[in-house]
């Protein structure tokens, strides 16, 4: 069918994306980012540097634009009708809103895990192998290797290794979410975005995901949205506080949670507001 040539094209296009790796510690540079949904001004001049191989947590009350911000980083907003974006997001020296950017290739570099676990109605194996297969990998043993490695990295290998051919939807919510993480890692991204990945999970599954995030930051840049202050404090190295589309404050998590510069931040964190 027609997907073969398309696949080929993208596979090559991915290599064409310039990725000049300068040894800076900054993974994503966001400058003057504005997002509008038809009439809603959802993000207002957000400027923020996201550190490499660290966890950045985004906090703030509901509707303040955290998810919107996260989706600008892999251009998932492109799929929303009526969304308009201004400003620049620079990843490894390339503005991902530049005219020559291959969005498909970008999304392989910037993976995403959603709030509601959304495995495909396929087997566990096929879920994790989905991304690699898109890139044209057909070799069975190669796929098996990738699947195993990704599931191990996502701390779910032991739980599912005997039932890789079972539907992913038969797993528990927490297991499904880790399958989704494995699926994202299987594409070998550099950055992983997580939108409230544990909000629908029980405390034990949440603890597992947090542990996992801790492990993952050795190799990946992680940006996580969370409503849970303790979670932000536990897992993140940096924290950004959003309010009404503005990035109110951003800095090291330790500082934000102990001596924030802004009164609003302190009020939100201590629960006096929000």
């Amino acid at each position: 069918m027609m997907n073969v040539p398309v696949e080929e094209k993208i596979f090559h296009a991915q290599k064409a994306v310039p990725m000049d790796k300068h040894n800076s510690s900054i993974s994503i540079k966001v400058k003057d980012l504005n997002v509008y949904y038809s009439s809603v001004h959802a993000l207002k001049s957000v400027t923020l540097d996201i550190q490499k191989k660290a966890v950045t947590a985004l906090i703030g009350p509901s509707g303040c634009g955290k998810s919107t911000f996260l989706r600008t980083l892999n251009r998932m907003n492109d799929t929303l009708p009526g969304a308009r974006i201004e400003g620049s997001v620079i990843i490894d020296g390339v503005n991902i809103y530049g005219s020559e950017i291959n969005v498909v290739a970008l999304r392989r570099i910037v993976g995403m895990v959603f709030q509601k676990s959304n495995p495909f109605p396929k087997t566990i194996f096929d879920n994790v192998a989905y991304g690699p297969r898109l890139q044209g990998i057909k070799n069975k043993s190669m796929l098996e290797g990738i699947v195993e490695e990704s599931l191990k990295k996502s701390a779910i290998w032991d739980e599912v290794k005997d039932r890789l051919e079972k539907p992913a939807l038969e797993l528990s919510g927490g297991q499904q979410q880790r399958i989704c993480i494995a699926r994202a890692l299987a594409v070998n991204p550099e950055i992983v975005l997580m939108d409230e990945p544990a909000s629908a999970l029980d405390p034990i599954s949440t603890a597992k995901i947090e542990e996992l995030i801790h492990e993952l930051k050795k190799n990946y840049t992680i940006v996580i949205v969370t409503h849970n202050m303790q979670q932000a404090a536990r897992v993140s190295d940096f924290t950004g506080y959003f309010y009404l589309g503005l990035l109110v404050e951003h800095g090291e998590t330790k500082k934000i949670f102990t001596t924030p510069d802004k009164k609003e931040t302190e009020d939100y964190i201590t629960g006096r507001f929000g």
Binding site: M2, T79, G111, M112, P119, P121, G131, R133, R183
Partner: peptide, 24 residues
């Protein structure tokens, strides 16, 4: 959500249609 999952893994529109939407 299923389409989003596919796009987020670097699928094109056609890949999303053929490999996720139609099979589902």
């Amino acid at each position: 959500e299923l389409r989003d999952a596919s796009y987020a893994l670097g699928a094109t529109k056609w890949q999303t249609i053929w490999k996720t939407v139609v099979p589902a």
